[in-house]
């Protein structure tokens, strides 16, 4: 069974008479300024941000799961999930493999650094909804336009947060994670 390509044609419908924006197969959308959303996310507490982000990811995962099955390759997942993230205007999704560790990258997020936690929660919701895996996504590294999100278990996510908080570079964190995984 071949993997269908992501086709965004007519995915977004603007009804100017009704004054609504509708995403195909989804409920209505609201077009908001990015800085306003960033300020809103910044003002909300952690659980509120996490829930908000998971809801966004759950919808994207559902849409990906409608088109992909469990045998889909990483390229197809990146293509479809990345397409959904792009339709939301959250940036360009990427995929990296550091040994056995998966790292999702988002290029050009309009929320910049303030939206990293939002992106992490979005991916967690998408993986949960689309592939049925409970994963913890931790912002690993960021530069001006790219953010790396570490996709690991909850235990590994706690260790990675501890290493990053103590000043360990993200490369060493990846090395340690791979080392600990091979040791176990």
């Amino acid at each position: 069974m071949g993997t269908p390509r992501f086709d965004p044609t007519h995915s977004l419908e603007f009804n100017l008479d009704r004054g609504s924006v509708k995403l195909s197969g989804a409920i209505e959308r609201v077009l908001l300024p990015a800085d306003a959303v960033a300020a809103l996310v910044r003002g909300a507490d952690t659980e509120t941000r996490r829930d908000f982000a998971r809801r966004l990811g759950t919808e994207a995962g559902r849409r990906v799961a409608e088109r992909l099955d469990a045998s889909a390759g990483p390229e197809a997942v990146v293509e479809h999930l990345g397409g959904e993230v792009a339709l939301m205007g959250m940036g360009s999704l990427g995929f990296e493999r550091w040994g056995r560790v998966l790292v999702m990258t988002v290029q050009g997020s309009p929320l910049r650094g303030e939206g990293d936690d939002l992106l992490a929660g979005l991916i967690e919701g998408a993986l949960q909804r689309g592939f049925g895996r409970t994963a913890s996504v931790v912002p690993l590294q960021r530069d001006d336009s790219l953010v790396r999100l570490l996709v690991v278990s909850s235990d590994a996510a706690e260790r990675a947060r501890g290493w990053l908080g103590s000043g360990v570079s993200w490369g060493d964190v990846l090395s340690r994670l791979n080392g600990s995984g091979s040791a176990s």
Binding site: A72, T134, A156, N178
Partner: peptide, 12 residues
């Protein structure tokens, strides 16, 4: 598959 890679990453 992506799922296999995801499972491997979750086992770290």
């Amino acid at each position: 598959t992506f799922v296999e890679l995801l499972d491997a990453s979750l086992l770290v």
